[in-house]
């Protein structure tokens, strides 16, 4: 067997380099560890240069997904609509949750559509690494492309279902106003928040494959605690202060309320939107995005192992 010290070996350094150990060769020629995690600023720069890939990957996934289902994109809208109907029957009529809320149907539908966006972003983020192992094992790119692309897919789907949502809102008698413009920054902040959560969950899901099984339960609990179909605020008025505070800053509730009040400032006939909600929404978006991004980047070179 030829070794590095064998002068006849094709592997051994020759001439001036003869006799150098591999480590000395590496040092002399300035070679770097293959696939090492780049420092954070460089990573961000690499990610930015891959933005076209991210968009193209997201669009391709969406097109591929719908080109196989016969009804195509229709399902994207039908599923949350069916959910809305069920929730309306159970919570609005049978449990009469609609009593305290002025305009229950749009209130409910906005909640369902927005929560669905959060839920699918978290779920697809959790699976984004394990679903793309083939890609990760074949090509080199900043892995953060994947959870970000999956979040963009969910955003594209939200935008499709927004068309239907606007229809429902109009049909329920809400008239368009300038406040509708606030939907845009609200969704932009929510996107940032979702991307951060998806990045963090991508790392967790890549390590703990069992997480994907557990997520539906965690998300359902979160949904029930966020007041998607009833006003949680009114049901815990006599509870300890810290629980009320927690319910108040719950990001899902914050983003749902932002969109609800943007569509109709008097959607809830008892309260108007407290101004601190926007501040909370900005804070959640920044904290989730920055922490999620750094958390994901820390494990960059470990994705795709085994």
């Amino acid at each position: 067997m030829s070794t590095l010290s064998d002068p006849l070996s094709l592997s051994a350094p020759r001439g001036a380099d003869a006799g150098l150990t591999p480590q000395q060769l590496v040092a002399k020629y300035g070679l770097t560890v293959s696939g090492a995690r780049p420092p954070l600023p460089k990573y961000v720069q690499q990610l930015w240069s891959r933005r076209h890939f991210i968009m193209s990957f997201a669009t391709a996934r969406l097109v591929a997904q719908y080109s196989t289902a016969k009804l195509g994109q229709v399902w994207q809208v039908v599923t949350p609509l069916l959910n809305c109907v069920v929730y309306f029957l159970v919570f609005g009529l049978i449990l009469s949750g609609s009593k305290s809320i002025g305009n229950y149907v749009p209130w409910l539908c906005i909640g369902v559509f927005i929560f669905q966006f959060i839920q699918t972003a978290v779920q697809s983020g959790t699976r984004s690494i394990s679903d793309s192992l083939g890609l990760i094992r074949a090509l080199h790119f900043p892995r953060a492309c994947l959870p970000i692309a999956f979040t963009i897919i969910q955003l594209q789907q939200l935008l499709i279902s927004m068309v239907v949502l606007v229809g429902i809102v109009l049909a329920s008698g809400i008239t368009p106003g300038l406040s509708w413009l606030l939907v845009v920054p609200a969704i932009a902040l929510l996107c940032l928040f979702n991307t951060g959560i998806a990045l963090a969950m991508a790392r967790v899901g890549a390590k703990t494959t069992d997480m994907a099984q557990l997520m539906p339960f965690i998300l359902r609990t979160w949904m029930y605690l966020s007041g998607v179909f009833y006003s949680i605020e009114r049901n815990i008025e006599s509870w300890p202060k810290w629980i009320q505070l927690a319910a108040d800053v719950n990001p899902a509730a914050v983003y749902m309320d932002l969109v609800r009040f943007a569509f109709d400032p008097s959607i809830d006939n008892r309260h108007s939107l407290p101004p601190h909600v926007w501040a909370v929404a900005v804070a959640w978006a920044l904290v989730a995005f920055v922490l999620g991004f750094v958390f994901f980047w820390k494990a960059e070179e470990e994705y795709g192992r085994g």
């Binding site: 293959s34 097109v63 591929a64 196989t68 990760i136 094992r137 074949a138 090509l139 080199h140």
Partner: peptide, 28 residues
């Protein structure tokens, strides 16, 4: 650089690339 090493090191000049674009393509 797509698989981490358990022990030892791989050092390269620039980023080697696998002729493996297959994984990125989608049949649909």
């Amino acid at each position: 650089g797509l698989l981490p090493t358990e022990k030892g090191g791989i050092y390269t000049n620039g980023q080697p690339s696998l002729l493996g674009v297959n994984a990125a393509l989608m049949n649909d």
